[in-house]
Design a protein around this nucleic acid. Structure first.
Lengths: 170, 170
DNA sequence: TTGGAAAATGAGTCTCGACTCATTATCGTA
DNA sequence: TACGATAATGAGTCGAGACTCATTTTCCAA
Protein backbone atom coordinates (compact mmCIF):
# COMPACT_ATOMS: atom_id res chain seq x y z
CA UNK A 1 0.00 0.00 0.00
CA UNK A 2 1.29 3.45 -0.94
CA UNK A 3 2.31 5.79 1.87
CA UNK A 4 -0.42 8.37 1.20
CA UNK A 5 -3.05 5.65 1.17
CA UNK A 6 -1.85 4.36 4.52
CA UNK A 7 -1.91 7.86 5.98
CA UNK A 8 -5.44 8.55 4.74
CA UNK A 9 -6.72 5.25 6.02
CA UNK A 10 -5.62 6.21 9.52
CA UNK A 11 -7.05 9.70 9.24
CA UNK A 12 -10.39 8.29 8.14
CA UNK A 13 -10.52 5.80 11.00
CA UNK A 14 -9.72 8.51 13.54
CA UNK A 15 -12.29 10.86 12.08
CA UNK A 16 -14.93 8.12 11.95
CA UNK A 17 -14.31 7.23 15.55
CA UNK A 18 -14.86 10.80 16.64
CA UNK A 19 -17.88 11.48 14.45
CA UNK A 20 -19.66 8.24 15.31
CA UNK A 21 -18.86 8.69 18.98
CA UNK A 22 -20.48 12.10 18.90
CA UNK A 23 -23.51 11.46 16.71
CA UNK A 24 -24.03 7.72 16.72
CA UNK A 25 -23.92 5.37 13.77
CA UNK A 26 -26.43 7.47 11.85
CA UNK A 27 -23.88 10.20 11.21
CA UNK A 28 -23.15 10.63 7.49
CA UNK A 29 -20.08 9.39 5.69
CA UNK A 30 -19.76 12.89 4.26
CA UNK A 31 -19.17 14.23 7.78
CA UNK A 32 -16.43 11.67 8.35
CA UNK A 33 -14.74 12.66 5.09
CA UNK A 34 -14.90 16.33 6.02
CA UNK A 35 -13.31 15.79 9.42
CA UNK A 36 -10.66 13.52 7.93
CA UNK A 37 -9.87 16.19 5.32
CA UNK A 38 -10.34 13.88 2.34
CA UNK A 39 -12.92 13.60 -0.42
CA UNK A 40 -15.93 11.35 0.00
CA UNK A 41 -14.65 9.03 -2.72
CA UNK A 42 -11.51 8.34 -0.72
CA UNK A 43 -13.54 7.07 2.20
CA UNK A 44 -15.35 4.65 -0.10
CA UNK A 45 -12.10 3.52 -1.69
CA UNK A 46 -10.86 2.37 1.69
CA UNK A 47 -14.20 1.13 3.03
CA UNK A 48 -16.53 0.05 0.22
CA UNK A 49 -19.65 0.40 2.35
CA UNK A 50 -20.56 2.36 5.44
CA UNK A 51 -20.93 -0.90 7.31
CA UNK A 52 -17.33 -1.77 6.51
CA UNK A 53 -16.25 1.51 8.06
CA UNK A 54 -18.38 0.92 11.14
CA UNK A 55 -17.05 -2.61 11.48
CA UNK A 56 -13.48 -1.32 11.24
CA UNK A 57 -13.80 1.21 14.04
CA UNK A 58 -15.88 -1.16 16.14
CA UNK A 59 -13.06 -3.66 15.85
CA UNK A 60 -10.55 -1.06 16.99
CA UNK A 61 -12.73 0.01 19.90
CA UNK A 62 -13.37 -3.52 21.09
CA UNK A 63 -9.68 -4.40 20.83
CA UNK A 64 -8.87 -1.33 22.92
CA UNK A 65 -11.45 -2.30 25.52
CA UNK A 66 -10.10 -5.85 25.71
CA UNK A 67 -6.59 -4.45 26.16
CA UNK A 68 -7.85 -2.10 28.84
CA UNK A 69 -9.56 -4.97 30.65
CA UNK A 70 -6.38 -7.01 30.47
CA UNK A 71 -4.44 -4.40 32.44
CA UNK A 72 -6.94 -4.66 35.29
CA UNK A 73 -7.27 -7.49 37.76
CA UNK A 74 -7.51 -8.45 41.39
CA UNK A 75 -10.49 -8.31 43.71
CA UNK A 76 -12.18 -5.30 42.15
CA UNK A 77 -10.87 -5.29 38.60
CA UNK A 78 -14.27 -6.28 37.28
CA UNK A 79 -15.91 -3.49 39.24
CA UNK A 80 -13.49 -0.89 37.96
CA UNK A 81 -14.07 -2.07 34.42
CA UNK A 82 -17.84 -1.85 34.80
CA UNK A 83 -17.64 1.64 36.20
CA UNK A 84 -15.24 2.82 33.51
CA UNK A 85 -17.26 1.40 30.63
CA UNK A 86 -20.63 2.59 31.84
CA UNK A 87 -19.18 6.03 32.48
CA UNK A 88 -17.94 6.27 28.88
CA UNK A 89 -21.06 4.80 27.32
CA UNK A 90 -22.78 8.11 26.73
CA UNK A 91 -19.66 9.66 25.18
CA UNK A 92 -18.85 6.66 23.01
CA UNK A 93 -22.18 6.00 21.39
CA UNK A 94 -20.58 3.85 18.79
CA UNK A 95 -20.05 0.66 20.72
CA UNK A 96 -23.50 0.88 22.13
CA UNK A 97 -25.31 1.68 18.90
CA UNK A 98 -23.89 -1.15 16.93
CA UNK A 99 -26.19 -4.07 17.42
CA UNK A 100 -26.27 -4.72 13.70
CA UNK A 101 -22.62 -4.68 12.76
CA UNK A 102 -20.80 -7.60 14.28
CA UNK A 103 -17.12 -8.38 14.54
CA UNK A 104 -17.04 -11.86 16.08
CA UNK A 105 -13.30 -12.12 16.69
CA UNK A 106 -13.09 -8.77 18.45
CA UNK A 107 -16.15 -9.50 20.57
CA UNK A 108 -14.83 -12.84 21.71
CA UNK A 109 -11.55 -11.26 22.79
CA UNK A 110 -13.44 -8.80 24.97
CA UNK A 111 -15.53 -11.68 26.24
CA UNK A 112 -12.41 -13.52 27.31
CA UNK A 113 -10.94 -10.48 29.01
CA UNK A 114 -14.11 -10.01 31.03
CA UNK A 115 -14.10 -13.72 31.88
CA UNK A 116 -10.60 -13.32 33.22
CA UNK A 117 -11.66 -10.40 35.43
CA UNK A 118 -14.62 -12.42 36.64
CA UNK A 119 -12.40 -15.36 37.58
CA UNK A 120 -10.14 -13.12 39.61
CA UNK A 121 -13.04 -11.42 41.36
CA UNK A 122 -14.48 -14.80 42.26
CA UNK A 123 -11.11 -16.04 43.51
CA UNK A 124 -10.91 -12.95 45.69
CA UNK A 125 -14.44 -13.53 46.93
CA UNK A 126 -15.73 -10.19 45.62
CA UNK A 127 -18.19 -11.99 43.35
CA UNK A 128 -19.99 -15.16 44.30
CA UNK A 129 -19.07 -18.42 42.60
CA UNK A 130 -22.21 -19.29 40.68
CA UNK A 131 -22.22 -16.17 38.53
CA UNK A 132 -21.20 -16.91 34.93
CA UNK A 133 -19.73 -14.90 32.11
CA UNK A 134 -22.84 -14.54 29.91
CA UNK A 135 -24.92 -12.75 32.51
CA UNK A 136 -21.99 -10.52 33.40
CA UNK A 137 -21.67 -9.49 29.76
CA UNK A 138 -25.44 -9.08 29.54
CA UNK A 139 -25.40 -6.77 32.54
CA UNK A 140 -22.47 -4.80 31.17
CA UNK A 141 -24.15 -4.29 27.82
CA UNK A 142 -27.50 -3.43 29.40
CA UNK A 143 -26.00 -0.85 31.69
CA UNK A 144 -24.12 0.79 28.83
CA UNK A 145 -27.30 0.97 26.77
CA UNK A 146 -29.23 2.31 29.72
CA UNK A 147 -26.63 4.93 30.54
CA UNK A 148 -26.53 6.08 26.94
CA UNK A 149 -30.26 6.42 26.44
CA UNK A 150 -31.10 7.52 29.95
CA UNK A 151 -28.53 10.28 30.38
CA UNK A 152 -27.66 9.27 33.93
CA UNK A 153 -25.84 11.66 36.23
CA UNK A 154 -22.95 10.43 38.32
CA UNK A 155 -25.03 9.72 41.39
CA UNK A 156 -27.66 7.70 39.58
CA UNK A 157 -24.95 5.73 37.86
CA UNK A 158 -23.31 4.97 41.18
CA UNK A 159 -26.56 3.91 42.83
CA UNK A 160 -27.48 1.70 39.90
CA UNK A 161 -24.07 0.05 39.80
CA UNK A 162 -24.26 -0.44 43.55
CA UNK A 163 -27.36 -2.58 43.13
CA UNK A 164 -25.72 -4.67 40.45
CA UNK A 165 -22.51 -5.08 42.45
CA UNK A 166 -24.54 -6.15 45.46
CA UNK A 167 -26.27 -8.70 43.27
CA UNK A 168 -22.97 -10.08 42.05
CA UNK A 169 -21.66 -10.32 45.59
CA UNK A 170 -24.74 -11.45 47.52
CA UNK B 1 -64.64 14.86 14.58
CA UNK B 2 -66.42 12.95 11.85
CA UNK B 3 -67.09 9.26 12.35
CA UNK B 4 -64.84 8.08 9.51
CA UNK B 5 -62.02 10.25 10.79
CA UNK B 6 -62.33 8.73 14.25
CA UNK B 7 -62.32 5.21 12.82
CA UNK B 8 -59.24 5.87 10.67
CA UNK B 9 -57.38 7.41 13.56
CA UNK B 10 -57.80 4.20 15.54
CA UNK B 11 -56.83 2.02 12.60
CA UNK B 12 -53.68 4.06 12.07
CA UNK B 13 -52.68 3.85 15.70
CA UNK B 14 -53.18 0.08 15.75
CA UNK B 15 -51.23 -0.38 12.54
CA UNK B 16 -48.44 1.89 13.75
CA UNK B 17 -48.16 -0.03 16.98
CA UNK B 18 -47.75 -3.30 15.13
CA UNK B 19 -45.36 -2.02 12.48
CA UNK B 20 -43.10 -0.16 14.90
CA UNK B 21 -43.14 -3.11 17.29
CA UNK B 22 -41.93 -5.36 14.50
CA UNK B 23 -39.39 -3.14 12.77
CA UNK B 24 -38.51 -0.44 15.25
CA UNK B 25 -39.00 3.28 14.86
CA UNK B 26 -37.19 3.31 11.52
CA UNK B 27 -40.11 1.61 9.77
CA UNK B 28 -41.68 3.84 7.10
CA UNK B 29 -44.92 5.75 7.42
CA UNK B 30 -45.90 4.21 4.08
CA UNK B 31 -45.85 0.77 5.69
CA UNK B 32 -48.12 1.97 8.48
CA UNK B 33 -50.57 3.42 5.94
CA UNK B 34 -50.61 0.16 3.99
CA UNK B 35 -51.35 -1.95 7.07
CA UNK B 36 -54.01 0.50 8.20
CA UNK B 37 -55.61 0.36 4.77
CA UNK B 38 -55.55 4.12 4.24
CA UNK B 39 -53.63 6.45 1.94
CA UNK B 40 -50.38 7.99 3.12
CA UNK B 41 -51.96 11.44 3.16
CA UNK B 42 -54.51 10.31 5.71
CA UNK B 43 -51.77 9.33 8.12
CA UNK B 44 -50.26 12.78 7.82
CA UNK B 45 -53.63 14.45 8.25
CA UNK B 46 -53.99 12.81 11.64
CA UNK B 47 -50.34 13.03 12.66
CA UNK B 48 -48.55 15.95 10.96
CA UNK B 49 -45.10 14.43 11.45
CA UNK B 50 -43.76 10.96 12.00
CA UNK B 51 -42.64 12.01 15.47
CA UNK B 52 -46.23 12.92 16.35
CA UNK B 53 -47.28 9.41 15.37
CA UNK B 54 -44.49 7.87 17.40
CA UNK B 55 -45.33 10.03 20.40
CA UNK B 56 -48.98 9.00 20.15
CA UNK B 57 -48.33 5.26 20.23
CA UNK B 58 -45.61 5.67 22.84
CA UNK B 59 -48.15 7.42 25.02
CA UNK B 60 -50.62 4.57 24.60
CA UNK B 61 -47.97 1.94 25.32
CA UNK B 62 -46.74 3.68 28.44
CA UNK B 63 -50.28 4.17 29.69
CA UNK B 64 -50.91 0.46 29.18
CA UNK B 65 -47.74 -0.42 31.06
CA UNK B 66 -48.66 1.85 33.94
CA UNK B 67 -52.10 0.22 34.07
CA UNK B 68 -50.51 -3.20 33.98
CA UNK B 69 -48.18 -2.27 36.83
CA UNK B 70 -51.13 -0.96 38.83
CA UNK B 71 -52.81 -4.37 38.79
CA UNK B 72 -49.74 -5.96 40.37
CA UNK B 73 -48.62 -5.62 43.96
CA UNK B 74 -47.50 -7.48 47.04
CA UNK B 75 -44.12 -8.90 47.88
CA UNK B 76 -43.06 -9.83 44.36
CA UNK B 77 -45.13 -7.49 42.20
CA UNK B 78 -42.04 -5.56 41.25
CA UNK B 79 -40.26 -8.76 40.28
CA UNK B 80 -43.15 -9.95 38.14
CA UNK B 81 -43.26 -6.57 36.40
CA UNK B 82 -39.53 -6.68 35.66
CA UNK B 83 -39.76 -10.16 34.23
CA UNK B 84 -42.79 -9.33 32.11
CA UNK B 85 -41.33 -6.14 30.70
CA UNK B 86 -37.91 -7.53 29.94
CA UNK B 87 -39.50 -10.57 28.33
CA UNK B 88 -41.51 -8.37 25.97
CA UNK B 89 -38.72 -5.94 25.21
CA UNK B 90 -37.52 -7.74 22.10
CA UNK B 91 -41.04 -8.04 20.68
CA UNK B 92 -42.01 -4.47 21.47
CA UNK B 93 -39.10 -2.57 20.05
CA UNK B 94 -40.99 0.64 20.12
CA UNK B 95 -40.75 1.51 23.77
CA UNK B 96 -37.12 0.67 23.81
CA UNK B 97 -36.13 2.48 20.62
CA UNK B 98 -37.67 5.76 21.56
CA UNK B 99 -35.05 7.69 23.41
CA UNK B 100 -35.73 10.77 21.29
CA UNK B 101 -39.47 11.07 21.45
CA UNK B 102 -40.61 11.93 24.93
CA UNK B 103 -44.04 12.01 26.50
CA UNK B 104 -43.45 13.40 29.99
CA UNK B 105 -46.91 12.83 31.42
CA UNK B 106 -47.07 9.21 30.33
CA UNK B 107 -43.58 8.52 31.61
CA UNK B 108 -44.30 9.99 35.00
CA UNK B 109 -47.40 7.83 35.40
CA UNK B 110 -45.32 4.72 34.76
CA UNK B 111 -42.75 6.08 37.15
CA UNK B 112 -45.37 6.39 39.86
CA UNK B 113 -46.70 2.91 39.24
CA UNK B 114 -43.24 1.45 39.59
CA UNK B 115 -42.70 3.49 42.74
CA UNK B 116 -45.85 1.95 44.16
CA UNK B 117 -44.59 -1.56 43.42
CA UNK B 118 -41.26 -0.71 44.99
CA UNK B 119 -42.93 0.53 48.17
CA UNK B 120 -44.90 -2.67 48.51
CA UNK B 121 -41.86 -4.85 47.89
CA UNK B 122 -39.93 -2.92 50.51
CA UNK B 123 -42.82 -3.20 52.97
CA UNK B 124 -42.82 -6.96 52.38
CA UNK B 125 -39.06 -7.07 52.84
CA UNK B 126 -38.40 -8.42 49.33
CA UNK B 127 -36.37 -5.36 48.46
CA UNK B 128 -34.12 -3.59 50.93
CA UNK B 129 -35.07 -0.19 52.23
CA UNK B 130 -32.36 2.07 50.83
CA UNK B 131 -33.11 1.36 47.18
CA UNK B 132 -34.83 4.28 45.47
CA UNK B 133 -37.08 4.68 42.48
CA UNK B 134 -34.60 6.24 40.03
CA UNK B 135 -32.15 3.34 40.10
CA UNK B 136 -35.00 0.86 39.81
CA UNK B 137 -36.22 2.64 36.68
CA UNK B 138 -32.65 2.83 35.41
CA UNK B 139 -32.23 -0.90 35.86
CA UNK B 140 -35.56 -1.62 34.22
CA UNK B 141 -34.73 0.48 31.19
CA UNK B 142 -31.22 -0.92 30.94
CA UNK B 143 -32.39 -4.50 31.04
CA UNK B 144 -35.01 -3.85 28.36
CA UNK B 145 -32.39 -2.25 26.13
CA UNK B 146 -29.99 -5.09 26.77
CA UNK B 147 -32.58 -7.78 26.11
CA UNK B 148 -33.60 -6.12 22.86
CA UNK B 149 -30.11 -5.65 21.46
CA UNK B 150 -28.60 -8.80 22.90
CA UNK B 151 -31.25 -11.30 21.87
CA UNK B 152 -31.21 -13.13 25.19
CA UNK B 153 -32.67 -16.59 25.50
CA UNK B 154 -34.91 -17.44 28.43
CA UNK B 155 -32.12 -18.86 30.55
CA UNK B 156 -29.81 -15.91 30.13
CA UNK B 157 -32.65 -13.54 30.93
CA UNK B 158 -33.43 -15.47 34.08
CA UNK B 159 -29.81 -15.56 35.22
CA UNK B 160 -29.37 -11.86 34.54
CA UNK B 161 -32.53 -10.93 36.37
CA UNK B 162 -31.48 -13.18 39.25
CA UNK B 163 -28.35 -11.08 39.75
CA UNK B 164 -30.37 -7.86 39.74
CA UNK B 165 -32.99 -9.25 42.10
CA UNK B 166 -30.25 -10.41 44.45
CA UNK B 167 -28.82 -6.90 44.33
CA UNK B 168 -32.16 -5.37 45.20
CA UNK B 169 -32.63 -7.79 48.09
CA UNK B 170 -29.12 -8.03 49.52
C1' DT C 1 -82.29 15.09 -0.73
C1' DT C 2 -78.71 18.00 -1.05
C1' DG C 3 -75.05 21.50 -0.28
C1' DG C 4 -71.02 22.28 1.56
C1' DA C 5 -67.64 21.22 5.07
C1' DA C 6 -64.61 17.67 6.46
C1' DA C 7 -61.85 13.95 5.14
C1' DA C 8 -59.40 10.80 1.99
C1' DT C 9 -56.63 10.09 -1.93
C1' DG C 10 -52.08 9.23 -4.15
C1' DA C 11 -49.06 11.04 -7.53
C1' DG C 12 -45.57 14.26 -7.03
C1' DT C 13 -41.88 17.18 -4.62
C1' DC C 14 -37.96 17.60 -1.86
C1' DT C 15 -34.16 16.39 0.94
C1' DC C 16 -30.62 13.48 2.41
C1' DG C 17 -27.30 10.25 2.32
C1' DA C 18 -25.02 6.10 0.29
C1' DC C 19 -22.41 5.07 -3.44
C1' DT C 20 -20.06 5.69 -8.57
C1' DC C 21 -16.74 6.95 -12.01
C1' DA C 22 -14.40 9.82 -15.40
C1' DT C 23 -10.83 12.79 -14.58
C1' DT C 24 -6.81 14.59 -12.22
C1' DA C 25 -3.01 14.24 -9.00
C1' DT C 26 0.56 11.69 -6.56
C1' DC C 27 3.76 8.14 -5.55
C1' DG C 28 7.62 5.10 -6.16
C1' DT C 29 10.54 2.64 -9.21
C1' DA C 30 13.75 2.00 -13.08
C1' DT D 1 13.75 12.28 -14.40
C1' DA D 2 9.95 9.76 -16.60
C1' DC D 3 6.32 6.91 -16.62
C1' DG D 4 2.89 3.72 -15.28
C1' DA D 5 0.40 2.24 -11.40
C1' DT D 6 -1.97 3.65 -7.54
C1' DA D 7 -4.78 6.85 -5.18
C1' DA D 8 -7.66 11.14 -4.63
C1' DT D 9 -11.19 14.02 -6.26
C1' DG D 10 -16.03 15.65 -6.22
C1' DA D 11 -19.89 16.34 -9.19
C1' DG D 12 -23.37 13.28 -10.27
C1' DT D 13 -26.65 9.13 -9.86
C1' DC D 14 -29.85 6.61 -7.33
C1' DG D 15 -33.16 5.17 -4.00
C1' DA D 16 -35.73 5.87 0.10
C1' DG D 17 -38.69 8.07 2.82
C1' DA D 18 -40.93 12.29 4.88
C1' DC D 19 -44.20 15.37 3.64
C1' DT D 20 -47.65 18.29 0.20
C1' DC D 21 -51.77 19.55 -2.27
C1' DA D 22 -55.09 19.66 -6.10
C1' DT D 23 -58.67 16.69 -6.76
C1' DT D 24 -62.22 13.47 -5.48
C1' DT D 25 -65.06 11.22 -2.09
C1' DT D 26 -67.75 10.88 2.10
C1' DC D 27 -70.42 12.44 5.82
C1' DC D 28 -74.18 14.80 8.04
C1' DA D 29 -77.25 18.72 9.22
C1' DA D 30 -80.82 21.32 7.49
Amino acid sequence: MRADAQRNRERILDAAEEVFARCGASASTEEVARLAGVAIGTVFRHFPTKDDLLAAILKRLLARLAEDAATLGGADGLHVFFRRLVGQAAAKRTVVDLAGVSVPAAVSRLDEAVGELLDQAQAAGTVRGDVRRPEVMALLVSLCQGALHGGWDVELQERTLAVVFAGLAA
